[in-house]
Amino acid sequence: MAEPTSAPTGYRLVLPSDWVQIPLRTGEAEQVARDIVTEAFARVPADVPRDKLTPLRLELERRLLAAVADARRAEALELYLPMRLSGEVNLGASIIVSETRLPTRSDESGTTGAISDPAEVAAQLMSRDGGSNIDLSSGEVDGALAVRRERVVPAAPDRGVEMDSRRVDYFVSVPGDPGRWFVAAFSTIGAGSPRDDLADALVEWFDALMTTFRWSWK
């Protein structure tokens, strides 16, 4: 297959219908989050007392807006969250999409270039995180070089992170734009432990989801 002459303008993922996307590249993310809450509670049966729904709705909106704020601080492009049919958002899992550029390196002649070898990319990722308790592998996603990183991130109560989490990141090189990488970062606390059966199942699900990833040029 011929190498693309221009970088893709987007991507596609085949997500289940109970996951919602919140775009972060515009100033409308907060309104999208509020619309998600409104739509969710519109499906609640009319015989449910309103005085019971109001505190739930306010808490749901608070949690969604907090997730949006966290993703914005990480300079993410999109945030994906699972929405249960009952209208409750399960913030025990999330996907954050962003972009990054890995450092360049110089050869003996002084010429600089983007790091593109999987081993060098893996080495960069290892050096960023200290190399402990990290599972790294390389391969391809929709024909592009990809590095998969999996690790357990300890709780950080001082930053509002109360529980350990299981993280799986896919770093995918952007065709036609050396040095630019697409990042899909999945996080889950499982059923309370990042190594429990639910966390294992969700990680397998995310790996399967990434097989549906496709670049788009339009």
Score class of each variant (00 low, 15 high):
R57W: 03
P103W: 07
R63F: 00
S165W: 01
R159F: 13
A66M: 14
E99Q: 11
P154W: 14
V48G: 05
K52N: 06
A71I: 09
G176R: 08
R72Q: 15
M126E: 10
S138F: 12
L64R: 02
R73G: 10
Y80E: 07
E88Y: 01
P178A: 14
P55L: 01
A119P: 00
S165M: 14
A74S: 13
P154Q: 14
G130N: 09
V89A: 07
D117Q: 08
S137Y: 06
R148M: 15
V97R: 03
S116T: 10
G110M: 10
G130W: 04
A66S: 14
G130I: 09
E150C: 06
E78S: 12
R101M: 11
A69F: 06
D158K: 11
V153M: 11
D158H: 13
V152K: 05
E59C: 06
R84H: 13
A123H: 02
L79I: 10
S165F: 06
M83P: 00
V153Y: 04
G160Y: 11
L56Y: 02
G87P: 02
A76K: 04
T100I: 13
T112C: 05
D135W: 08
V172W: 00
G143N: 10
L56H: 00
S106H: 11
A156W: 11
K52T: 04
R148H: 11
P103I: 08
G110N: 11
G139N: 12
I95M: 15
